[in-house]
Design a protein around this nucleic acid. Structure first.
Lengths: 254, 254
DNA sequence: CAGTGGTCTAGACCACGTG
DNA sequence: ACGTGGTCTAGACCACTGT
């Protein structure tokens, strides 16, 4: 059988393209450099623009590229490691590491959150909004849900919304004894409001980090943090002492 | 100005479609039910198939749908919570919970892994392949990298590959004192081999869980586990005692 | 084999950022 | 105003799964 021609996989074009581009990125491009525009690239590789875009999408998903409408496609820096589980448990605190209070409202939590809280629909739930800034970039938007019943000390209409109210809710939480917490991570797509906060388009891939805070009385709070999946690597420091530090610097020789 | 017509956002069609479909899924469909095919759905909503597909892609990303070529699009069950960080640290063990040894090889690890290991290129590194099965479904494919220097007790060519060799590597690891470990989670796309193992197409979105194992001598092993992002929710049990249990059962009548 | 989702094309227009 | 990426169309063909 002279089938020297291995006629195995008709590898999709966009997949092959992705590989080629990925190698080119390693070889010929620096972080931050802008690529030729999509029409030009498509022509250069002899494919339709849609096909080229499919390859770019993958590379963006993997954190290799960054695309911005009206600007262009640039080579992304390595993902930043953001610590998600600190060594100690603890309530979310005001003014800690990179978190910034945005405001508060009494918007209705989604059904999934109500289930985690064990609350019925219609029960009052405080909602605190925070943003996490790392290296000048918003990397996460969080919604913290606290059933009103869990923080009875809070006067209902002192400051109905805004940072002042948010601060008050967090202050009340600190008074409770935290029994434990658990976390889960899953893939999602950014809701419109989160997307705006993260400077992404709606639907952008995000990592959803859901944290439950337990007291003796049950689940006292649930937080849903939306992390940019393209730029973030979530780190969990299980080890006793080792600190996670990212690649020191990419250090391009001037 | 009589602009009663709020001409704010020209919301993308696929985004609106996604919302409509999502509501329809909640209302009119059971888990496992198959949807009309894409051409039919596109016609029904008066959009091109590509646009319809964009909406379906999003819903699949969010774990609401499952699409299989040659079969159709079905309503996905809720994501399964898979425990990633057990309460105690420990080396990967043979025959534990849902993990299954696949084999071993001495393939060269990717550059990123070498960097984590602190190894130079060309150093011998053992590679153990495992698969994680949950509820009859492969949810993760793992590659465990162990520098040969870390397990000197291993005779080089007893069983050069296959499960026997993999078992031997794990057995050697148990002998070392584990000092600590850390973990990171990021979004990626499935490599061709992982995709096959997970019964997905290459490029499918996955959650990459990278674990470093430390001994006094430094990083003794690195594992890169590829979890199906569409079906998995990674859980981290930080809490002292609470166990994460998912929605009891979806229980479709008979 | 028929029917499904997956890939690909060659166009068009729109929304956004920058000069 | 211009150039960028984002959306959308109406087709075509391919690869896979079932019967």
């Amino acid at each position: 059988m002279g089938t020297t021609q291995l006629e195995t996989v008709p590898e999709p074009k966009y997949w092959h393209l992705k590989t080629v581009l990925s190698e080119a990125l390693d070889r010929d491009f620096e972080v931050g450099e802008v690529l030729p525009n999509e029409r030009e690239l498509a022509a250069r590789f002899g494919v339709a623009r849609a096909t080229l875009r499919q390859a770019l999408e993958q590379l963006e998903l993997e954190g290799r590229l960054q695309r911005r409408r009206g600007v262009g496609t640039t080579v992304a820096p390595p993902r930043v490691g953001v610590a998600v589980a600190s060594a100690q448990h603890g309530w979310p605190r005001e003014s800690v590491d990179g978190w910034e209070l945005v405001g508060a409202s009494d918007a209705v939590p989604p059904a999934a959150v109500l289930k985690l809280l064990g609350s019925a629909e219609g029960e009052a739930v405080h909602t605190v909004r925070r943003t996490r800034i790392t290296q000048g970039q918003a990397v996460a938007a969080e919604l913290l849900y606290v059933p009103a019943a869990c923080v009875p000390g809070l006067s209902p209409l002192d400051a109905p919304s805004g940072p002042a109210r948010a601060r008050a809710v967090l202050r009340e939480l600190q008074k409770l004894a935290l029994d434990g917490q658990d976390r889960s991570v899953e893939l999602g797509s950014a809701r419109a409001d989160d997307a705006k906060e993260l400077d992404r388009l709606p639907g952008a891939p995000v990592l959803l980090v859901t944290t439950r805070y337990f007291t003796a009385a049950g689940t006292a709070a649930v937080s849903v943090a939306t992390y940019r999946a393209d730029t973030c690597r979530l780190t969990f420091g299980d080890s006793g002492d080792v600190q996670i530090t990212d690649a020191p610097t990419v250090s391009v020789a001037s």
